[in-house]
Design a protein around this nucleic acid. Structure first.
Lengths: 242, 242
DNA sequence: CGCTGGTTTGAAGGTCGTCAAGAAGGGTGG
DNA sequence: CCACCCTTCTTGACGACCTTCAAACCAGCG
């Protein structure tokens, strides 16, 4: 079992313990790996022949384009996350998927998912749980857009993303590698890139964080959390139900 | 089989045909019905002992409260929708659920869901599909908040909701009963109630729609769709995969 | 009739977007 | 190593959009 095969297993076993058979099914699910350059489309909205990706390495995002050309990023995926699980059962994809950094992904089809549901109900339950966790993040993102101002929004996003990265060992409380452009942040946060820039300056001047050259340094996490009114409850969904 | 028992069956059989056994399991799932007055909390964020509701009658909503008292409505549920399916596998609920009108709901627990996944994989797949459809609506809502202005946002929301209501026979192209307060709309759309009021006036003055006394009349659906840049692709997820 | 919840309107101000232009990097090729 | 590109970042000025505050209005209901 190589690293590629274990990343999904590691994620799903946070929820329930899985048997060797069940783990084997996850291995097969991740048998084929493909690599992509940074900033390429892995899938476009409206495409059929659905595949669900499992992100093995790198960062990616799901987004939608509006008729007027604006882009809204739905969420960012980090290693271990599904990409497009939501629409794997749909006839056509309801969103696009793009890499942010160079990425390596495995993929599976709706049919393979059906087989898992049929043969490995415990794995199916774990996938349902994982889907629920990802939706909880999308929901908090929605709250972020609807009811927080730009300062709170940026702060909240950067904390949340750090928490998620910490789970897979890619961040610490002091910061993390953060190759987003300000336009990425803007399209995720419903702001203009220029305003994101202003907000980042403000956060820097308040001695809360510094984001420069793809690296985020967090100077004052409690202060940042206070600005963001951050509560990590929605991320901390119990791994093992009683 | 009374109406209460069929509403979920009607929804899930849009996706795959179900056997009598499988339909029976859905009946049992909806055996207990409870009623609630309008504007009461069915569940609060942070509560444990998760139940997932199936809305049999009336309207409800999922929302989150921020520390500063602001409310963001995640989505509205109409008859046939799940309420809180996302967090039924979680230790505690990540959101609150409230009735908008008087409602009747049935409910099931995470354990019952497990049993279905074990014994009725086809039903499990259909539930996964339904969950995906509901998430697609939340995602479009997120796009709405992030990248549309108030006018587009209100127009888009009212069209989308009408489309959803039409599926269950509660709306026509001419309009629908719409017991939302302007504050409900504001909390869903990330606006102030006062601004929602102004936008509604604008839509009225443009001869697009009239919303008054709980009733929405749509005067010019194409015009409204143009304002909203509405595309119904995300709602129209193929019922029967090949 | 008066209360209550919801709607409507105006005025003032703040947040955020747009436009325009320049600076700072990072990569490429001479 | 330098010149030149391109992408990304940065800053200022201005205005649009939306919020807030305050007050009046309206409909339903005890």
């Amino acid at each position: 079992m190589d690293t590629a095969a274990t990343i999904l297993a590691r994620k799903l076993t946070q929820y329930i313990e899985l048997s060797p058979d069940e783990l084997g099914c996850l291995d097969r699910l991740q048998a084929h790996n493909r690599s992509f350059e940074r900033r390429v489309n892995l899938r476009s909205e409206g495409e059929s022949g659905q595949q669900c990706f499992v992100l093995q390495d790198g960062w990616a995002c799901c987004y939608k384009l509006l008729l007027n050309g604006r882009r809204q990023i739905i969420n960012f995926a980090i290693p271990g996350d599904f990409l497009g699980l939501r629409s794997v059962l749909f006839r056509v994809s309801d969103h696009s998927v793009a890499s942010v950094t160079p990425v390596r992904v495995s993929s599976f089809s709706g049919r393979e998912l059906f087989e898992i549901i049929n043969k490995f109900p415990r794995v199916a339950a774990a996938i349902l749980w994982a889907l629920s966790c990802e939706e909880a993040i999308v929901v908090e993102h929605l709250v972020n857009l609807g009811r927080r101002n730009a300062l709170e929004r940026v702060a909240h996003f950067l904390i949340e993303f750090g928490e998620r990265l910490q789970v897979v060992g890619l961040a610490s409380d002091q910061g993390y590698e953060c190759p987003f452009t300000q336009e990425d942040l803007a399209d995720a946060l419903g702001l203009s890139a220029i305003h994101v820039n202003r907000i980042l300056r403000q956060l820097r001047e308040r001695q809360l964080l510094t984001l420069s050259r793809g690296s985020l340094q967090i100077h004052d996490l409690p202060g940042l959390a206070a600005v963001a009114q951050f509560s990590d409850q929605y991320l901390d969904q119990d791994r093992r139900p009683s």
